[in-house]
Computed example of a mutant assay.
Amino acid sequence: MFLVESLLGGSQNLNTLILLGAKTNSLIQEGQWWRLITPMFLHIGIFHIFMNGFTLLYVGQVLEPMIGHWRFLILYVLSGITGNLASFAFGANNALSAGASTSLFGMFGAFLALALIYRENRFLTELGKSFLGLIVVNLLMDLTMSGIDIWGHIGGAIGGLLLGYALGIPRINRPKMILRILAIVIVVVISYFMYVKGMIVYG
């Protein structure tokens, strides 16, 4: 997709980004709901895709073997959507955003969930502490930098936390099924609330 962006006018060209599906609240309000999904596959500039790609490699090579390919894919896509929904509901109306950071924060949140579920596992608890610190540091940095979609990061982290709790680790019967279902219900309810709020605010 980055190559496509480059061929169509450049990854920092606003018209190109909008054409390929970057998130703009006004267009989502007009019915282009797919812009809650497509932004996670677009990036703005070479530094942006390099940093997100490096983070995905670093975190993914630990998380994906742990939870499995399909769970990883579900987590990546759905936490990216919850992040974009949070940006839609609470972010600036005229802001354009793109990037995989909503999904990356979802992965950070998933590590927190696993640390809570498997508290007796020292490796997971230490990972959970590390990623909690990473989330806090990044959000503090977001507050001091312009052009950063902090709501997308918060929404992605919350989505990843809940989805990580719902998915767990394969072949280990924890958490209980009722808690997994509850986590999924909460994700759906929060997502619906954010979508409706975004439509009301910008409609």
Rank of each mutant, 00 (worst) to 15 (best):
F2R: 03
L7G: 07
G9I: 08
G9K: 11
S11E: 04
N13T: 09
N13V: 11
L14R: 11
N15C: 02
T16H: 06
I18R: 13
L19Y: 12
L20V: 08
A22R: 05
K23N: 13
K23P: 03
T24N: 14
Q29H: 03
Q29N: 08
E30I: 01
Q32A: 05
W33Q: 01
L36Y: 02
L36V: 06
I37L: 15
I37T: 01
F41R: 05
F41W: 14
I46L: 12
I46M: 03
H48S: 09
G53K: 06
G53H: 03
L57F: 15
V59P: 01
V59M: 15
G60A: 08
V62A: 12
E64G: 02
E64Y: 00
E64Q: 14
I74M: 07
I74E: 02
Y76Q: 03
V77H: 00
T82A: 06
G83M: 02
A86T: 00
A86R: 03
F88K: 01
A92D: 06
N93W: 02
N94P: 00
L96K: 01
A98K: 05
A98F: 10
T102N: 13
T102H: 13
S103R: 10
F105D: 06
F105M: 15
G106L: 11
M107F: 13
L114G: 02
L114K: 06
I117N: 00
I117L: 07
E120T: 12
E120F: 08
T125N: 06
G128P: 11
S130D: 05
F131M: 15
G133L: 14
L134G: 15
I135G: 11
L140V: 13
L143C: 09
T144E: 13
S146E: 12
I148G: 01
I148L: 11
I150P: 07
W151F: 15
G152Y: 12
G152M: 12
G152I: 12
H153P: 02
H153V: 04
I154L: 14
G156C: 11
A157H: 09
I158Q: 05
G159P: 07
G160R: 08
L161Q: 08
L163I: 15
L163Q: 03
G164M: 10
L167I: 13
I169S: 06
R174F: 13
R174Y: 14
P175R: 09
P175L: 10
P175C: 09
M177Y: 10
M177G: 01
I178V: 13
L179G: 01
R180A: 10
I181N: 00
V185P: 04
I186Q: 05
V187Q: 01
V188N: 01
V188C: 08
V189Q: 01
S191T: 06
S191K: 04
Y195D: 01
V196S: 09
M199N: 07
I200A: 10
I200N: 12
I200G: 01
Y202A: 08
G203C: 10
